[in-house]
Amino acid sequence: MQHLLLLVGLLGWLAHRPAPAPAKYFTRTGTISFFSATPIEDISARNQQVAAVVDTQTGQVAFTVLMKEFKFPKPLMQDHFNENYVESEKYPKALFSGRLVDFQAGALAAASPQPVQVEGDLTIHGVTQRVRVPGTLQLQNNHLLVNAKFVIAPADYRIEIPLLVRAHIAKTVDVTVALACDPLP
């Protein structure tokens, strides 16, 4: 009986102990979409298999994006994207590895989205560029919501666009990132 009481007491203590805030948040079903607008044609694609880890203690961020998971409304466009533009067989993934700028670990306590800047190396088509991107972070129901919008130029990543379709593809492409990350045990 005494043992049982002890056990219940112990369990009670364990249950009431404040849970340590998880340090890392992770998703493999994040969304990245891009949009190219020209007077002739609008092109959009969406990838819903984006993997990301955010370490809220150190402020470090890592993304991997499988290029073949970008889905286009037209199958032919998707083939061309993979075959001719980003060369997915040679460069299957886009990577981002960076750090939140001036990030304080306590900043996420607020319920509203916190504006942040993230700086790091973005690798697309085998070419790495240093980028700095604005976004927001928000902790909601134990999920870390990450949102960002930025612009990239295909030419910066040596993605060639042939003369014949140059009028169809914008010089810069709008990229939108939306992730809901789960705490990593």
């Binding site: 880890v53 370490d55 470090q60 961020v61 890592a62 590895s97």
Partner: peptide
């Protein structure tokens, strides 16, 4: 640390 995070991912 950055590489570790990428490896973990």
């Amino acid at each position: 640390a950055q590489q570790d995070l990428m490896q973990q991912l």
